[in-house]
Nucleic acid binder design. Structure first.
Lengths: 243, 243
DNA sequence: CAGTGGTCTAGACCACCTT
DNA sequence: AGGTGGTCTAGACCACTGG
């Protein structure tokens, strides 16, 4: 219609058509999207291809699927953007150097226990690392893991694996859900000292929590960066056909 | 093997297998993943199913595809997480109230011109809004749009549409790419005054830029939140089989 | 029961890359 | 030419939902 649609894959054209209808208001939130078999007939294409097109919309959050019933236009999520974070690449390749400060078993205080969903006083692992750039310390990273007997954490893992991988290996369970929050907060005294900055200095504070399918918390981490030394950046291509 | 794999779809099992091999180091970054036809033979499943499994890994960023050559294990992107932002939407529960401060046509200074990819002095739109919660101002939002003749910005749009929607309507072009950065920075004097806080106070600073397929900048925005008043939160389900 | 989406198959043709 | 991934088809069976 407007873009060179004839050079798009069929499944993409279908996705684009439906997207246009949704954005034009012809299909409103809550409305049923034509059923797969209907689209097969309408477009004269196979069901596999129809499903591929719908998968794009599903992933983009434009529609929602209810098994045995149909696909429906989703309520518009303002500013919903799916992004791929590229934490860690200020200079692309040679990113930060992580310096292990300590790995120890501690008794969970109230906050930690709450976050990990264990009783207060339960033994948990704490891994603390300093994050350095060539110009000095830029951040502090604290990771908490439930202590599991017979599954010690190896320094090797800590050095070379990222947190999701450590969590997965340590608990032998698949990560089902990740929650993340990002906020700006002043550095406290200890953090200021570690980062050679004054307390109160603006810092980027990132929390992450990993959950298993049954809801158990598998681990969580708190990472703090000196404000001027680090930024999260992300890129998204809202309509790249990944499928 | 470890989890109840027999109840998983075949394509998911394949993805999980390969993921395990990658995380165990049996397949290292840069290594070729077995070809699709190889996997068809190895697993005794159809190519469609193989491709579906690979699509999961592709989307998760674990592998990369080169047409005509093969799939390869991607370089580990530390802490790469794909998440769906639930930035606050108006009209939804405990969200913020946006107070329009001004809409005006300004001459782009060097920075603005650079960001928008227009000449210095070019006329651009500036939309400035104050973001309020029940407890007072929490943030300031500035949006810049190239000025296009005959496409005035309606207050209606500004009030009710989100930025991607405004951009899309204003420019009549599809948004192809979104860049976003998140950092912590001190409030400057003007921001401090608007937010009834002292300059230097930690603030969350979010930049977003929207691009068309041809590389033109369609708009960009800068949003600043008082650190203690706002946090970005995100949830992701790494292995939801969206495909 | 009929309709829906979820999974899977066994082919096919194409464009691309290497040898 | 032979291998690779990209697209697409025409079936099939299943689990789920509704009337």
């Amino acid at each position: 219609m407007k873009t060179n649609r004839d050079f798009m894959p069929v499944y993409y054209q279908l996705a684009d058509d439906l997207k246009q209808q949704i954005e034009a208001g012809e299909l409103k939130p809550g409305d049923a999207v034509p059923s797969e078999s209907q689209l097969v007939n309408d477009y004269g294409i196979s069901r596999v291809t129809v499903r591929r097109g719908l998968a794009i919309l599903l992933e983009a959050g434009l529609i929602e699927t209810i098994k045995g019933i149909g696909n429906f236009v989703a309520k518009p999520k303002l500013n919903q953007v799916t992004l791929t974070f590229q934490e860690n690449d200020p200079l692309n390749e040679n990113s930060f150097i992580y310096q292990l400060l300590e790995v120890k078993r501690i008794s969970a205080d109230e906050i930690i226990a709450g976050k990990l969903g264990v009783g207060e006083g339960t033994k948990v692992f704490l891994i603390r690392r300093l994050i350095n750039s060539d110009d000095g310390p830029v951040g502090v990273d604290m990771k908490y893991l439930p202590y599991i007997k017979g599954q010690p954490i190896l320094e090797n893992e800590i050095e070379y694996a990222d947190f999701p991988a450590i969590v997965a290996k340590h608990t032998n369970v698949t990560i089902h859900k990740i929650e993340m929050s990002i906020a700006a907060a002043p550095l406290n005294d200890e953090e200021g000292e570690l980062l050679k900055t004054l307390a109160g200095h603006p810092a980027l504070c990132i929390h992450r929590a990993f959950y298993a399918k049954d809801g158990r918390t598998l681990g969580f981490s708190k990472t703090i960066y000196r404000g001027e030394a680090f930024e999260l950046s992300a890129v998204s291509y809202p309509y790249s056909a990944k499928v």
